[in-house]
């Protein structure tokens, strides 16, 4: 693996370059002219998918707790942040008036974090009872919680009910998306390489043995789950302020499956592989837009064949062939 610091530094440079190039510097207008809206949209979707896949990978891959409810946490983040922007955005701008031009970005930052924290809180509430279960039971219970979240939103008239929430201001830019994507990779990467990471891996590889060694398995599982939910919430918040229109149906079981496919193709437990898979699948989704009805058939077949022939994922263990620093595993 490239160390988390290396990843972070390269991500910061990328974010700086990207935000400089694409956020209205008239003297650089030649770059703006070359990137059209369509490409920009795909790049933003790519970033959101990277956040989703990397965060789910923390839960499913590193900690080995197969969750099928990621779309639920994304929904919490999307609805929470959108509601904050729409109901309190104007008041927030007035309060932050004194700091001038920084008011709008700061407010959006607060909104994003609010979405993430809300999702993390729901993740904590869901995780504490359900992480006592294992394997397929956990998968079904997380799926159940995801559906419950969706049904609750569907019946919340204040949030638009089944019709959804429309007219969310479009604050998400490429810079924001890449910043969140970079920090999710950084946080997950450093978490996995820390003492916590050892705990996650122990829990994944053999829960009973880990428990016998004195590892508080519940604690590690809940931490992974909550951090995963936090970033899913951030992704949801970005998505809501990008599309401008969210419905409960958009966060159903199939959305969770989309993310699961990214994680599995990339290789469970490989942050780099999952990032590549998220980028590749976003592009593939666009290319297959003409053949929408075949897309899911292909993904389903891919999932089955992959599990039989190559369960570690298409690009699992990516990065293991990169030069390692001595003294780091």
């Amino acid at each position: 693996m490239i160390g988390p610091k290396g990843l972070f530094v390269s991500a910061v440079i990328a974010v700086g370059a990207v935000s400089y190039l694409f956020t209205g510097h008239p003297e650089m207008s030649w770059t703006l002219a070359q990137i059209d809206d369509y490409l920009l949209n795909i790049l933003i979707l790519m970033g959101i998918n990277v956040v989703l896949a990397v965060s789910l990978n923390l839960v499913n891959g590193h900690a080995g707790q197969f969750s099928l409810g990621h779309a639920g946490f994304m929904a919490v983040g999307a609805y929470g942040s959108a509601a904050l922007t729409m109901f309190l955005g104007q008041a927030g701008l007035t309060v932050l008036q004194p700091i001038g031009g920084l008011a709008a970005p700061l407010l959006f930052c607060i909104v994003l974090i609010f979405g993430g924290v809300l999702a993390a809180m729901v993740g904590l509430l869901v995780g504490i009872p359900s992480l006592r279960l294992r394997g397929d039971y956990l998968a079904i219970v997380t799926l159940g919680f995801g559906e419950i979240i969706r049904v609750v939103i569907q019946n919340a008239d204040g949030l638009g009910g089944a019709r959804g929430l429309t007219g969310i201001p479009a604050h998400t830019t490429l810079g924001w998306t890449f910043a969140v994507a970079a920090s999710s990779i950084y946080v997950v990467g450093s978490l996995v390489n820390s003492t916590y990471g050892r705990g996650f891996i122990a829990v994944r590889d053999d829960e009973i043995a880990a428990e016998a060694m004195g590892i508080n398995t519940t604690k590690y599982k809940v931490i992974a789950f909550t951090v995963g939910a936090f970033f899913a919430g951030l992704a949801g918040a970005l998505y809501a302020h990008f599309i401008g229109y969210i419905t409960p149906e958009g966060f159903n079981f199939l959305k969770s499956v989309d993310v699961v496919v990214m994680v599995i193709l990339g290789g469970m437990g490989s942050t780099a592989g999952v990032t590549v898979a998220a980028v590749a699948l976003t592009v593939l989704n666009e290319l297959l837009r003409q053949a929408e009805q075949y897309r899911m058939v292909v993904f389903a077949l891919l999932l089955i064949i992959l599990m039989i022939l190559r369960p570690q994922g298409l690009i699992g263990n990516l990065g293991s062939w990169l030069p390692r620093k001595r003294g780091r595993s």
Binding site: G64, F66, G135, D136, A139, V257, V260, I264, Q293, Y294, M296, V297, F299, A300, L301, L302, L303, I304, M307, I308, P311
Partner: peptide
Amino acid sequence: KPLRGRPKLTVLITAIGVSLLLEYLGQL
């Protein structure tokens, strides 16, 4: 059948794949 004796998770993911395959083939 090719997955006999593999980890439970592998089989579960395959089952999800089969489920999606049937649904979208049905849609086609």
